[in-house]
Design a protein around this nucleic acid. Structure first.
Ligand SMILES: [Mn+2]
Ligand SMILES: [Mn+2]
Ligand SMILES: [Zn+2]
Ligand SMILES: [Zn+2]
Lengths: 149, 149
DNA sequence: TCCTTATTGCAAATGTTTCGCAACTGCATT
DNA sequence: AATGCAGTTGCGAAACATTTGCAATAAGGA
């Protein structure tokens, strides 16, 4: 919902408060991130940004992702393949379902499962701080119902 | 519940069926794995096994873990720190809660959450094949109840 | 025991992410 | 607009976990 410009401006403020600078590179990466509707890894972000500014380096992408993560501007995920994937954090919490055939990542959120996780942790004597939930599935062919169908 | 000897014997059969061999190294690693009650990584397994046979190499541990995983004899997990951790697969499915202060890994299982995940996937048009669920929490101090306590 | 081939140890290669460092630039201040 | 101090960047090298090529070794059926 928030526009790119506003988001960049808002982030600029956060940086300033932390004594950090808004550089061309950060602006560029922020833009790439804002325009992304998937979950790119560092190399993917680099590729997209590099197309707009071929002086950018991959190191800077990594460093920027760290800054953005610290500022809470992005979230980092590590799905099965192990590499870090990023997405902007201006949306509310959600988890992911990965299509094991296509690799497509589908977002979902469920209050019920969030609550259940909290309860499970509590029963074990823990306060839930964060969690990682990934579902790996295969697309159901329409028309095929459950075992008893 | 299953004894180490039986487990090794059973695995030997699986290997044979796959045209693979039961080597000293595999026997050793299997033993280390069977005696482990935690979730060691490759280096951890190597260290324990190396103590019993200092001719073993780390490569062999990695290769063996791959074979064992393919045979379904072990499970591999990758918690937040990124490295692969292993455990024998002779117990029923469970998920993990990690104490973010001590690093301790607590196992738990919940039919409710398993079912809920299946339902969520189904609602998105997917058949759930596997999942990853990790809870990261902090030990509650006894005597301190919820916000309204 | 012999033979075939799976397996091993070693070192080198990978792939991802981090780091040291000198050059560069944002930006607050003259 | 010019100055100066950090914070930042690009580059190459390092770090780290894991994989792989290869020649030597050993499992296990004949
Ligand atoms: Mn997402
Ligand atoms: Mn476990
Ligand atoms: Zn969630
Ligand atoms: Zn589960």
């Amino acid at each position: 919902m928030t526009g790119i410009a506003q988001r960049v401006a808002g982030f600029e403020g956060q940086l300033k408060d932390a004594g950090l600078r808004m550089t061309q590179q950060r602006r560029l990466i922020l833009r790439v991130l804002a325009e992304a509707d998937d979950h790119p890894d560092a190399k993917g972000i680099f590729t997209r940004a590099f197309a707009l500014d071929p002086t950018l380096s991959l190191s800077t992408v990594y460093r920027t992702m760290k800054v953005l993560e610290t500022q809470g501007a992005i979230e980092r995920h590590a799905f099965e393949d192990g590499v870090s994937r990023y997405e902007h954090a201006d949306q509310e919490h959600h988890d992911h379902l990965i299509d094991i055939e296509s690799g497509e990542v589908i977002e979902f959120s469920s209050d019920a499962i969030e609550e259940l996780q909290r309860r499970i942790a509590a029963e074990l004597g823990y306060e839930l701080v964060r969690h990682r939930l990934e579902l790996y599935g295969r697309k159901k062919r329409p028309g095929v119902r459950g075992k008893k169908g």
